[in-house]
Amino acid sequence: MTEDRELDAWREQWSSVAEPSADFQRDFQRKVQQRIKREDRRFVLGNILTVIGFIGILIFAWYMRRQSTWMGTGWSASICVLVFVSAGVRIWVLRRTWRPETQSTRAFVELWHKRVAARIRMLRISTYLSIGWLIFCAVLMGVNWSIIGQDVGAHPKEWVALLIVCVLMQPVLLWYGAGWLRRRKLAELDEVKQILDEMDGKSVQ
């Protein structure tokens, strides 16, 4: 069998793999249109929730600054800094990795690699930011302990709850959540590297 005949035979089999009927096409187009509408709604809702969350955090920071007699200024300022730094880091780290799918496969995989590496970097920065946040809160409390101490004595239950929620939960989230995410991203990075190697003809058995 010559090469071309072989290819023709494969093409003939391949062409009959999926020959959608007119009904299927209509149904398919209808489903796609529904999916587009759903995605559009999700996109709008996602953006609205992000803006609400962002504004909510800023209002909360402003409220704390006005209401608290102690630490208010420090906490509200640090919340604002944390929010803006987090948003800035996200945009900076993921720059030039948007809209990769219209590119050639090679460019897409290279961008994919860049994107995963950026996410791993972002995860590391987030961990440092969270640790920094914990240290900042501890220092702030230490500096204001003379005032806080009185409040702790007056409302011990609330402070224990605050301690559990804010302080003890963060290391749990950091070690388990970030650890799980990091392992997942590293596995993805390996996979992408493997695809790049395959493209360079390095690791295909």
Partner: peptide, 13 residues
Amino acid sequence: YRIAHNRGLSHVW
């Protein structure tokens, strides 16, 4: 085809 293959690659992962 570019979009289809790139989406396919992501799907495989």
